[in-house]
């Protein structure tokens, strides 16, 4: 059991927190048909981090976050610029920008051979959830021991703060968010400031993606922004219930995914563990698949499917 505390508790909590946070924001992204913003932003986090490493020479968390944040800002600005100045369709503009910036990141990484410093493309994609070890977590009593708690991996506190911030944002901005998601013209007419809300939503997505990137890699972030919310959308017509469903789905896939990746191979006789981030992403996809097949509101008209 001490093993669990030391090796698994922190990754599990981090995975759950990230999943819940992403799924919460994902509800609005899916409704607004902006799902791929999360995809674009998590791709450009890598170049930002590489650039900040090349400039500052450290892998300090703050420098990395700032680098990734700047990269995200540059990306969003470039997408808008190309969309409006070049009159390019928005998904194509997005494709142009994020692939180019990602390519730049990979090039910078290989050119400077920074791969030696635990910074590589694979890490960026799958994250290192398993490496979040709590060395002082030797016994349950450690949970109440301030000295042991101080040794918790810093990623835990970071994702917790981000989760709290996103939760506050959604609660405070609930009405403008909802109105803007369904009818932005109406939102503008009642002074709900859809543009400001949009911008804040994108900023929240960026912050979440960047905080999560460090802890769990980008793949889980993209999956969690989209799949739980999309599955929840097929379960109900009520937005409040949809958010609740998405949280349940996120929780199930995070916990089950982590357990399956860590202990699943052992059950069938292999002494190895699989990528937890990948497993969580796969499971949430499985949930979406089930929702697509059996969700009560899966049809376009939103009603109950015909009995046929």
């Amino acid at each position: 059991m001490a093993d669990f505390l030391m090796l698994s508790l922190v990754p599990l909590v981090v995975a759950v927190t990230i999943s819940l946070t992403c799924a919460l924001l994902g509800n609005f992204l899916v409704l607004r048909r902006q799902s791929l913003i999360g995809d674009a932003i998590s791709h450009v986090a890598l170049p930002g981090i590489v650039a900040s490493f090349l400039i500052t020479g450290t892998l300090a968390a703050s420098a990395m976050m700032i680098g990734a944040g700047v990269a995200a800002l540059v990306t969003v600005a470039m997408i808008e610029l190309i969309k409006h100045l070049g009159r390019v369709e928005s998904s194509a503009a997005m494709g142009v920008v994020f692939t180019a910036i990602f390519a730049l990141g990979v090039l910078m990484l290989e050119w400077n051979d920074a791969s030696g410093v635990h910074l590589d493309v694979e890490h960026a994609l799958y994250g290192n959830l398993e490496s979040l070890i709590w060395f002082e977590g030797v016994h349950w009593s450690s949970l109440f021991d301030p000295k042991a708690l101080a040794d918790l991996p810093p990623q835990l506190a970071r994702v917790a703060w981000v989760g709290l911030m996103v939760l506050t944002f959604v609660v405070v901005a609930w009405r403008p968010l909802v109105v803007g998601s369904f009818d932005s013209a109406f939102a503008a007419s009642i002074q709900a400031r859809p543009v400001l809300t949009d911008l804040l939503l994108v900023i929240m997505v960026a912050i979440t993606a960047i905080a999560a990137f460090d802890a769990v890699g980008s793949i889980i972030v993209i999956a969690m922004f989209i799949c739980p919310a999309a599955a929840a959308r097929l379960m109900t017509n009520h937005l409040g219930k949809q958010v609740a469903w998405s949280q349940v789905f996120a929780l199930i896939s995070a916990v089950l995914g982590y357990v399956l990746a860590g202990y699943g191979p052992g059950w069938i006789g292999f002494e190895a563990s699989l990528s937890a981030a990948g497993m969580i992403a796969s499971l949430t996809g499985l949930i979406l698949l089930l929702a697509c097949l059996f969700g009560p509101h899966r049809r376009r008209d939103g009603g109950q499917p015909a009995s046929a």
């Binding site: 995809d39 999956a223 999309a230 992403a281 996809g285 899966r298 376009r300």
Partner: peptide, 29 residues
């Protein structure tokens, strides 16, 4: 389904890639 193409793309992209990552770790093992 009622989901938009963007959600469909994102969902397929991330989950299949995630599955691929799981298989990579399996191969390494």
């Amino acid at each position: 389904t009622r989901l938009g193409e963007d959600a469909a793309i994102g969902a397929v992209l991330s989950t299949l890639f995630g599955l691929g990552v799981v298989l990579i770790t399996a191969i390494q093992a």
